[in-house]
């Protein structure tokens, strides 16, 4: 039986990296007595796969992973069992029993959206109007927006026009904030820092990642013309 679990990551847990979050949930499954399935062999591992890794320092309201179980409690009870054993900063917000033919979370991830704002003690390097203008010139008007993406081994040129589905600068509670919906997944994964860095350099502003607070709202599958949160899409 396949289960999709959605969780929030907030507060100090943002300092715990993806691999450690995986290990954390493996232990949580045992503490909560979830009847998770194991692979065969001398070092059996849990059948568990995460949708889209989240970088260190980023908080999120929409993280997902799938597990395979032998049997399950009713979702509300299983969720309670998990939440009873969570550390401060992780909260399970959904536990969905998937249809047998559902594709796994990782394979259907297509997009994720983010809010990015400046840390309380940092002054934004430009005004909201300047950022909006900058976005217009940098992103909205051109036909293509080519930037260089560096990976561990290589660098390649990508077109932001094809990978940024939505981007805007706005004011929330008197603070400048960016919203962006970005291509996510194994093939065309785009990080919000890279998009913002490109914008800043087009505006000739100094970019310092340390000034930013990044929050992921949710992760989505491509529902044919609209984005559907993974928790509601079983493919």
């Amino acid at each position: 039986m396949k289960i999709r679990i959605k969780f929030r990551k907030y507060g100090m847990m943002k300092f715990i990296g993806h691999l450690d979050i995986m290990r954390y949930f493996q232990k949580a499954m045992r503490r909560a007595d979830i009847a998770i399935c194991y692979s065969a062999g001398f070092s059996p591992h849990q059948i568990m796969s995460f949708a889209a890794p989240l970088g260190v320092g980023i908080t999120s309201d929409g993280e997902y992973f799938d597990i395979e179980v032998q049997q399950t409690l009713p979702p509300a009870e299983a969720m309670r069992a998990l939440n009873d054993t969570m550390a401060d900063g992780i909260e399970v917000t959904d536990y969905v029993i998937l249809p047998d033919n559902a594709s796994n979370a990782m394979s259907i991830v297509a997009a994720a959206d983010y809010d990015i704002s400046f840390l309380e003690d940092r002054k934004p390097p430009a005004s909201l109007e300047q950022f909006q203008q900058g976005l217009d010139l940098f992103f909205h008007r051109p036909k293509e927006v080519l930037i260089t993406k560096q990976t561990k081994k290589s660098e390649r040129t990508i077109d932001l026009k094809k990978l940024v589905y939505e981007i805007r600068a706005e004011e929330i509670n008197g603070n400048i904030s960016f919203y962006m919906m970005l291509s996510t997944g194994s093939s065309d994964n785009l990080k919000p820092e890279l998009v913002l860095q490109s914008l800043f350099s087009s505006m000739e502003l100094v970019f310092d990642e340390d000034d930013l607070k990044i929050h992921r709202r949710d992760v989505y599958a491509d529902g044919g013309g609209r984005w559907i949160p993974l928790g509601e899409f079983y493919g």
């Binding site: 100090m12 847990m13 300092f15 715990i16 450690d20 232990k27 503490r31 260190v56 320092g57 054993t85 550390a87 401060d88 900063g89 840390l119 340390d210």
Partner: peptide, 19 residues
Amino acid sequence: SERILLHVDKPARYIGNEI
């Protein structure tokens, strides 16, 4: 501060909050 924690090796060494 966040700035320090995101720049030191393994910030989890310093935040506590373990199960």
